[in-house]
């Protein structure tokens, strides 16, 4: 099934998505990866407000290459999401509804997605040139000293992704492989 989604990602929208569904996202998402997550977790612990509102937000695990003159952003594909598993359940509990990345997630993350009606989306790893064409605006909003790991507010248009883990606990990595092997028999 294909869904055209206008962000932010509400609970109602996220709860309709099922593993394997294609989505096209338009609106605002935020890039954050390892170092930014560590810093956000520190701020949460100290009670310092975060650089963006987590409620119904979609976090893109991504650190872009620099933009050439005239470009909005450089290449901008997903990084391995599992490295953010340590922080993801807390982010989800605080309102973050969606994550875009690639690769396996922990049981704790899948559980948090189920509990809070969130979603884990996959973008094509290694297709950074193609994906960058769907980012129409990029603004560095925090942690500039982290270079590629700084937090960017990105406006996307028809950003293509696929649902990997849905709020019922289905996982495309398990289903997709099983379906393929059964079809092959």
């Amino acid at each position: 099934m294909e869904h055209v989604i206008q962000l932010p990602m509400t609970k109602e929208t996220a709860s309709k998505l099922r593993a394997g569904d294609q989505v096209l996202l338009s609106g605002v998402i935020y890039s954050a990866r390892d170092a930014a997550h560590e810093r956000m977790a520190e701020q949460i612990e100290k009670g310092i407000p975060l650089p963006f509102d987590l409620m119904d937000a979609v976090i893109y695990y991504m650190g872009p290459s620099p933009a050439k003159p005239g470009q909005v952003i450089g290449s901008a594909g997903p990084t391995t999401a599992g490295r953010m598993d340590r922080w993801a359940p807390q982010m989800i509990a605080l309102g973050a509804r969606g994550m875009i990345g690639k690769g396996k997630r922990s049981r704790e993350v899948a559980e948090a997605i189920r509990e809070h009606q969130g979603v884990y989306l996959g973008a094509i790893g290694g297709a950074g040139a193609l994906l960058s064409q769907h980012i129409i605006k990029s603004e560095l909003i925090a942690y500039e000293d982290l270079g590629p790991e700084a937090i960017r507010k990105l406006t996307v248009k028809d950003f293509p992704a696929v649902v990997i883990i849905d709020c019922e606990g289905n996982d495309l990595y398990v289903i997709g492989r099983k379906n393929y092997l059964e079809q092959r028999k």
Partner: peptide, 15 residues
């Protein structure tokens, strides 16, 4: 993706 990167001279992957 690979063709676009080559034509526009941008990185194939951000990493």
């Amino acid at each position: 993706n690979e063709k676009m990167a080559s034509e526009r001279e941008i990185p194939i992957c951000q990493d």
